[in-house]
């Protein structure tokens, strides 16, 4: 065993342990702020695994998008809400936890079994390392052109939708008749909703 492969093995073990422990922490810790920070750790270890696989572009994208944008957004959302209230106890919580643990465990065993019984074609295609960015660019403008262009429509729509839902300058009147409007469904609720109960 050479020094290079030993280093690789140690890195892999360290990253994997961080990943698994972090992921358990995200799910199990009661404090949501800890969960959010641990999630950043999980994302960072995943990008470390990408680096080990010699996919530096994907690793960089992972850090930029998930740690830099998604996770920061989650933290912002938590801090903006900043609401401390004691939630009412859910009946049968222990049973629910046992059930969901059983489902997740079953799924995990299934996936492990599938992964080990499948004859994977190993080793896969050789890694192209530094050329990856160029290759991705070529794909985006040849065979993935359609999804690439469609993604622009998707992003435009997500942006417009976010603005529509978040903006405050509301038209509170019917543009045709000038009657006041409440930006709600035309079918008015007769029975109170679950959320409006005291």
């Amino acid at each position: 065993m050479t020094i290079a492969s030993t280093t690789q093995l140690i890195c892999f073990a360290a990253l994997s342990i961080t990943l698994v422990v972090g992921a358990f922490g995200v799910v199990l810790l009661p404090n949501i702020v800890y969960s959010a920070f641990l999630l950043a750790g999980v994302f960072l270890s995943v990008s470390g695994l990408y680096l080990l696989l010699n996919a530096s572009f994907v690793a960089a994208a992972q850090i930029l998008v998930y740690v830099g944008a998604v996770n920061v957004l989650i933290l912002f959302a938590i801090m903006l809400v900043n609401k401390r209230e004691d939630l009412s106890a859910i009946p049968g919580l222990a049973l629910r936890r046992v059930l969901s643990a059983a489902v997740c465990g079953g799924l995990f065993l299934l996936l492990v079994r599938v992964a080990f019984t499948t004859p994977w074609a190993l080793p896969g295609p050789a890694s192209i390392g530094e050329e990856a960015t160029a290759r991705i660019g070529e794909h985006l403008f040849s065979d993935y052109l359609l999804p690439f262009e469609l993604a622009s429509v998707l992003l435009l729509m997500a942006m417009i939708g976010a603005i529509v839902l978040a903006r405050r300058d509301v038209y509170t009147s019917d543009v045709i008749t000038g009657e006041p409007a409440d930006q709600g469904l035309i079918e008015k609720a007769r029975t109170p909703l679950l959320t409006s109960k005291p």
Partner: peptide, 9 residues
């Protein structure tokens, strides 16, 4: 229009 929400979007 009746609900007062923007129509173009």
């Amino acid at each position: 229009e009746r609900s007062g929400t923007p129509i173009g979007e």
